[in-house]
Design a protein around this nucleic acid. Sequence first.
RNA 1: GGCGAGGUAGCUCAGCUGGUUAGAGCGCAUGAUUCAUAAUCAUGAGGCCGCGGGUUCAAGUCCCGCUCUCGCUACCA
Length: 675
Amino acid sequence: MNTPKRYLITAALPYANGPVHIGHLAGVYVPADIYARYLRLRGRDVKFVCGSDEHGVAITIKARQEEVSPKEVVDKYHNMIKQSFDQFGITFDIYSRTTSKVHYETASEFFKNLYDKGLFVEQTTEQFYDNEAGQFLADRYVSGTCPNCHNDGAYGDQCESCGSSLNATDLINPKSALTGTKPELRETRHWFMPLDRYEDFLRNWILEENKDWKSNVYGQCKSWLDNGLQPRSISRDLNWGVPIPLPDAEGKVLYVWFDAPIGYISATKELTTDWEKYWKDQETKLVHFIGKDNIVFHCVIFPSILQADGTYILPDNVPANEFMNLENDKISTSRNWAVWLHEYLDDFPGKQDVLRYVLTANMPETKDNDFTWKDFQDRNNNELVGILGNFVNRAMVLTNKYFDGKVPQSGSLNEEDQTVLADIKQYKAAIEDNLEHFKFREALKEMMNLARLGNKYLADNEPWKLIKHDEQRVKTILNISLQLTANLAILAEPFLPNTAVALKEFINQPDKKWEEAGSGQLLETGHELNKPSLLFAKVEDEEIQKQLDKLINARQKAEASDIEPAKEEISFDEFNKMDIRVGTVLEAEKVPKTKKLLKLTIHTGLDKRTVVSGIAEHYQPEEMIGKQVCILVNLAPRKIRGIESQGMILMAENGEGKLVSVVPDEKFQEGAVVR
RNA sequence: GGCGAGGUAGCUCAGCUGGUUAGAGCGCAUGAUUCAUAAUCAUGAGGCCGCGGGUUCAAGUCCCGCUCUCGCUACCA
């Protein structure tokens, strides 16, 4: 493979509705930063761009909840994220945002350009518009009378009474679910990206030309392509986002997935007037670092957009990672099960490298991985302190003790000395090879092997014994140990940048290039070293316990506040409309070809009837048989998977979506009324 | 259910186009050692390579079926 002339590295834009956590770091930002630092050290031309993704419905909802403007929401998180990345040492050349002026211009131009070339499919439909709320209504937000069965409570997408699927415009007496007012019909236009037209191109480009992509990425793409691509809408009726740059398109913005990836381009534009070299020259290598949830956008959709434009290059690789779990449980923002970067930085000041190390060593490169605080402690104490910190300290302390902190002169080299020096070269080559292929875990391991080698070398040669009768030999041993340390100062930098700075300070040698590593002559004889301090401190049990307690507390708090808000008050009459009875399950079986559905036959006291219920993930069919339940018997029947469901079983649901049946306290007569 | 990715030592993972006694780090056991933050070094124990078939002189590695985990997707009055 030829060395590319220049690199453009992108890291997924964090969504500005919350702070960044270790899952984001392990999946995207740490590997991207290691890669970027490594390439810079090698003197390559690199631009590393990122920024906040600040549009989309989720942000408008969050803003409404917190009773602030969307702009205030994104300002808050953008600044927070930017600052924590900065403190953590992620070396973006620019961290921009999709609300920047340049981005608005870039994204509009991009749209306009494709629009002018006639590459979008335009569709005008009539949709209901709520004047009071000032927005278009999705079908399910409209209710009215069903044109088929004249049931009053039909929704815009479906009538639950007769089961027929509807368009909102079919309803008689439509009402807005938001305000209860009568919506008016307005024409609305939307633009679609006809992805199906790019299938051949994508098939060839990914499946033929990029067989070397990671298997998880390649497989996902193949899956999408084999299932056939559909046109995707790139516009939305919303007032928060990049406006569609066309006349009569008020209230329409670019849909986030069109908007966000273009943010990479905008950020590059803001960074340099030379931006076109990085986006349009075939000799640039473009690499997207993302998490697995983003594969389709970066491998299928964005490349189609770039291809449609025709002047842009395509990504050379998309090394998506899987997910990081936390203490055997999925990281979850809503359940507050996460280690937040800004909190880590507060709790462990000066320990950026420790987190970088642990996240790299456990990076979810091939499958989901688990972060535990115990592992964090073990890796810090055993590997960073015990192996790396310890070796450096030994070499430095011995030199200070015997040779007054000056690099001693090496004598003739024996076989072992030569092997060690040759190994340094080999490890360097292995680190490079692994980094070039996005194998960060392995690369880190090779770097640590260098320190292991040093410890072994010292243990085998025992300079503290030799000093009594063979000073010349000790000089050689320590010279080599120090050369090894100097190599570590260079080779550790992509992974542990702060440690590398400290090491360079110890050996009093600030500026060495990556290419110089592998040499046994980095330090000249007589070169004066500085006094070392400890590179890493032990992490005590109490600190770990504190973090574990913090996690549990945070989750409990989140769960407590996660309780659904109270619904509107209703009258007794309204309540009384519901006919809930005690029933007994007679038969239960799984609905074939579904994951969640059970078909139940229930004795209600009034009759025996069939109910289809989405509980199969919580109850086995056999444990339902004979069980008593509460059943809403006067609910309009509805066909589910071809089976008519005549009622609904009452279930309690918690914040995690777990279901528990609501049953009478003791065995009770079927048909008994619940009220 | 469909599709994708995984299932290899107690834990986290390597094992490329099939080839001698299946590897690494951590953990564990034993020993050595004291320059070093009781750190380090050596040795060792520990694996029906998810299960069952098949192809082959030869399979963790290829093919078929099954099973479990994760993700996307459909179903969730």
